[in-house]
Amino acid sequence: MFKLILKFQDTVLEEYEFQTTPVTIGRRDDNDIVIDNMAVSGHHAVIEEEEPNYYVLVDLESLNGTFINERKITRERVFDGDSIIIGKHTMEFIDLRPESERPVREENDEAKKKGRKFRDTVILDTEAQQELLAKQAAERGEQAEQFPKPKKVNFYGSITILSGGTPEIIELAKRVTTLGKSGDSDIKCSGLLIGKTAALINKRPTGFFLAYAEGLKKPEVNGESVTTQVQLHDGDEIVIGGTRMTFNMTEEVVEPAS
């Protein structure tokens, strides 16, 4: 049992009391708590229960994030007196169970971590890591420029169905795109002797690769039958059974952030 006090810039808008969970929060009408503001996602967050007696606030991949005591969270236990921020609104969380039944936050969490020791492989927490990296970078000074930062190349690929299927352009957004007869295939192909999964296109750091999977009739790239895998190039023609398509690719070189 808990209470939420919804506020906007210190003005109390509403008080809610709940006996059970889940309690959903969002802009849409089907939420338990509706906050009508564009900074709030349709389904923004939910409060759930966790064994033995915790309440947990879960961010539902909202655009602007969910915060407990000014810290961005994805899924975090929430305790009596905590302040939740959603969009531009705040909510005070009040645990209404008797004091003996409510959990309290372990405040010594961070302090405890500082006392750890390791023999060889070491783990650093994020703050310590950033400090160390900054220090290292400063020590290196101009030297740092000697090493070219590995350039990142983004590849964007697409398949255009020319014949033997619904004419359309399919973006290759997935790491692994399946092509075949199966209804589950990302790209449907037709033909008697081709496999349910006839081929797969795999997006790798160096580009796109087409691999044969199954079926008596093998996929063809530019007229050559593919028995293992081939790297795809812009403009390649792919034939799987009775389906003809072309592969197109653009590259974008991303300069690493300094």
């Binding site: 060889d120 492989t121 070491v122 783990i123 650093l124 890591q129 160390l132 990296l133 290292q136 970078a137 290196r140 740092a144 420029e145 000697q146 090493f147 070219p148 930062k149 590995p150 690493p256």
Partner: peptide, 27 residues
């Protein structure tokens, strides 16, 4: 590892990273 992070940031070369103590520090 911190060594790998340094390579990504262009602070360290791949060869240096292989010999660096930072490769034993997990990020």
């Amino acid at each position: 590892t911190l060594a790998e992070d340094q390579v990504e940031r262009g602070i360290m070369s791949r060869e240096e990273a292989n010999d660096s103590q930072l490769k034993h520090i997990l990020s």
